[in-house]
Design a protein around this nucleic acid. Structure first.
Lengths: 198, 198
DNA sequence: TATAAATAACTGACCAGTCAGTTATTTATA
DNA sequence: TATAAATAACTGACTGGTCAGTTATTTATA
C-alpha cells in the first residue's frame, strides 16, 4: 500500500541522464552533485534517495553504456553474408553507434584514465574487448576457412580492426574538422580488408 | 655574483618529474600538491616558487612530453629507404617510444578527456596530429609516386596508420596480457601495407 | 492519516594557495 | 682569516572556500 506511486526507475534514469550530461561537460571531479541535481530537476538530497554516492554514478553509467554497445556488437544477423560484407556491416554499425554515443566521449576517456587505478573499471573494459572478440573472431575465422581471406591470424586481424575503431574515434575526438568518423573508419577497414583478401 | 647557484631549472624538472608520477598514480584531481612536494623532496611552499598553480603543471608536463615525441616522429633519417621500409621503421620507432612513455598513459587519457573542455590542451593535441601528418604524408606520397603503392589517398592512409598506433595503444593500456604493443602495432601496420602495395 | 517523496539547511573534512619566518650559502671587509 | 651582511632557497602552519553527504522538516497522496 504505497501512499505514492513508485517512481524509483524513472528517478534513477533521470539522475543518470543528468549525470552523463554534467560529467561530459565538467568532468567527473568538477561536476558537483548540486549540478547534477539541478540538471535532473531535483534537489541534492533527493539524489541520495536513489544513488549511494558519487562513485556509484560512474559504475551505473558504465553499465548503461555497455549494455547498449554490447547489443550493437552482435553479429548474429550477419551470419548469411560473406565475411567481407559482415565485417563492413559491422564496421558501419560500430561507427554509427560511436557517433551516437559521441556526447559520452569525454566520459569514456576519463574512464580509460580511471581504469589504471580502479579495478572495477578495468574489469569492465576488459569485458568489452572480450565481447568484441567473441563477436568478430568467428566472422574472420569464417573468412579464412572459406578461402575468402588469406591464412591470417584471426586474433591479430580482429585487434587491428578494433584499433582502427578506437584509434579513429580518438583522433576524431579532438579533430572533428580533419577526421570524419564514418569515412575514416570505413577507409581504414577497407585498407585492412585489401590486406587480407586471398 | 649571486650568493647561491641558480637551481631553477633543476627544481622545475624535479617538480615536473614528481608531478608526472603522482598524477599517473592518483589522477590530476586526487593528487595533492602536498603529495607532489613530498615526492619531489621539497615543501609545498617551495613548489609555488617554481610553478604558478596546479593547472600550470598540466601545460608544462604536456610540453615536455610532446617535445620528446616530436623528435621521435622525425622521418628525416628515413629518406633513403623505400617507402615501405620507412613506414616500418617509423612504426617501430613509435611503438618503442610509446612503450617508453607508458608510465604516462593514465595522464594521456586524462588529457584526452580534458581536451573536450580545455582549449589549450585541445590545441596541443591538434598540433600533435599536424606534426604527425607532416612527417608521414610525404613518405606515403613518395610511395605512391614511385609506384611502390597503389593510387591511395595519402591522408586516409596516414590516418589509418595513426589509428593503428593510437588504437592499439589504447587496447594495450587496459589489456597488457592480451595485447602486445610491439607485435600488434607491427601486425596492424603490415596488414595496412599489404592493402596498399601496388 | 500514515508514509513515501522531496527538500533546504547544515556539517565537517579537505586542500590549494599564502606568507611570516628560518636556514644555507656566498660575498665583503676588518 | 674570522665574521658580518646579504639574499636565495626553503618551510609549514594557517585561511578561506568548496562540496559530498546528512538530517530535520515539509508536502503530497493512497
Amino acid at each position: 500500500m504505497s501512499p505514492r506511486p513508485d517512481v524509483r526507475d524513472e528517478r534513477v534514469n533521470q539522475i543518470l541522464d543528468a549525470a552523463e550530461l554534467v560529467f561530459a561537460q565538467k568532468g567527473f571531479n568538477q561536476a558537483r552533485m548540486e549540478d547534477i541535481a539541478e540538471e535532473a530537476g531535483l534537489s541534492k538530497g533527493t539524489l541520495y534517495l536513489y544513488i549511494k554516492d558519487k562513485d556509484d554514478l560512474i559504475v551505473s553509467i558504465l553499465d548503461r553504456i555497455f549494455t547498449g554497445v554490447f547489443e550493437l556488437m552482435s553479429t548474429r544477423d550477419l551470419a548469411e553474408k560473406s565475411a567481407t560484407d559482415a565485417l563492413l556491416d559491422f564496421a558501419s554499425k560500430m561507427s554509427h553507434g560511436y557517433q551516437k554515443l559521441s556526447r559520452l566521449l569525454p566520459i569514456a576517456y576519463e574512464f580509460f584514465s580511471l581504469a589504471f587505478r580502479n579495478p572495477v573499471v578495468q574489469k569492465v573494459l576488459k569485458t568489452y574487448l572480450q565481447h568484441y572478440l567473441e563477436s568478430v573472431l568467428p566472422v574472420i575465422q569464417r573468412g579464412v576457412d572459406s578461402g575468402e581471406f588469406k591464412e591470417v591470424d584471426p586474433q591479430e586481424v580482429a585487434i587491428a580492426f578494433a584499433a582502427i575503431f578506437e584509434g579513429t574515434t580518438l583522433l576524431w575526438a579532438y579533430n572533428q574538422e580533419l577526421i570524419h568518423l564514418d569515412q575514416h573508419i570505413l577507409a581504414g577497414v577497407n585498407l585492412l580488408l585489401e590486406g587480407i583478401w586471398a
